Simulated assay, not measured.
Amino acid sequence: MLNLLSLFPPPYGGVAIHAVRLLECLIERNVDVRGFSLTGIPDTTLPISKVSLFDVARGIGEQGSIVHYHSDEGNWKTALLASSYWRRKRIPYIVTLHSFRPRGIFTNGMIRNALRRAYDEAAAIICISENVRSSLIDLIGVRHDRCTVIPSNLPVSSFERGRPLDASIPSAWSNAQVRIVANAGRVVRFDGEDLYGIDILLKAFAELRRTTPDASLLIVVGDDVVDDDLYVSWQRAARQDAGIHLVNDHTGPLLPAVLHAHIVVRPTRTEGGPSLTLSEAMECGRIAIGSDAVPRLPGCRLFTNGSDTDLLRVLQGAADDARNGNFPAPIHPFDDILSQLLMVYEDAGLDIHP
């Protein structure tokens, strides 16, 4: 039995969406698997149970099973709590890290050593990018040979494809001639700057509207507003331009909006991997634009990280292509990702084909 412990939607962040996709892919491969959610339960028939931190401490996993835990730097307490149980019960566990950014708590020697032990004693550590692996090594001191890099961009799930366009999305965007979409899971600064790069996107879009007045920008925002002043600046820009639609009551996955869009933009100043948002855009044959802050998938149109003028250049070309119906062919950059994960499971002792 494989126990998949993760965030599940809602809310619809990248880790939660990846968990749904992974669970669906594993079931299609006839893997004996069940999901355990630390957040919500999606409206699906997939085998997912809600668990609390108390449940985790009491034990997720049993003798003969394997646990695959999905985490990031923000869930370090859960990682410590759960791994101590698994080690005590001799239950093999695999950890996938979707990001690992610096936090003040990691300067605490006791915390850092405890986390290093939790990761070093895992059956495997999976990082979704080389950037995450390097950060984990630098911040915690985990051995390089313990970390495997496997991207997280699995195929879009049937759960996502079955959802309609969210009711929160205004018709002014859905009926526009050139539709652009971006998302920001949190409203937060990193190293003093807008982490998701929405400030850069708003500046570039304001200039784009001078030459492309029929363009419309949808920004789907998560409910985690850490920096109120930053959010106020986004709201101010949206009030000043009728072509900007800032939506913070979106209740489903982003995919229906991606399918309805022409252009998908990811202007992040940094992130864990190439971006699930851009991956699903390319899988669906949409124009994908991303900052060059991290390596992106082949076919993604890049602009210089933090530069609104360079983003404007790329946006203008994409808008011209969208108006002329020039869209890229759908690509499938994830063909071997599930196979790599299955090999990790087998190496950890899971019988994939009992």
Rank of each mutant, 00 (worst) to 15 (best):
E207T: 13
I263H: 00
K203W: 02
G185R: 00
S233H: 05
T268R: 03
L259Y: 05
D214H: 08
A261Y: 11
D223T: 11
Y196C: 00
H262W: 03
E207M: 04
D228G: 02
D249P: 01
F205Y: 06
I263G: 05
D241Q: 09
R209Q: 15
N248Q: 13
S279Y: 07
D223N: 13
D194F: 11
D227I: 00
N248H: 13
E193D: 13
T211E: 15
H260G: 00
L217I: 01
R189H: 08
R189N: 08
P267T: 07
L201R: 00
I200V: 15
D214L: 08
T270E: 12
G185D: 02
R239L: 15
G192C: 02
T277P: 00
D228W: 00
L202G: 03
L218F: 11
S233N: 10
Y231G: 03
L254T: 07
Y231R: 10
A237F: 08
D249Y: 04
T211Y: 07
V225A: 00
T268N: 15
A204I: 10
G252V: 09
I263M: 09
A215K: 10
H250C: 10
T270H: 06
E207W: 05
L201A: 06
F205Q: 03
E193H: 05
L195D: 08
S279R: 11
P267A: 05
I198C: 09
D223A: 14
L218H: 11
F190N: 03
D227K: 04
N248A: 09
A204L: 06
S279T: 15
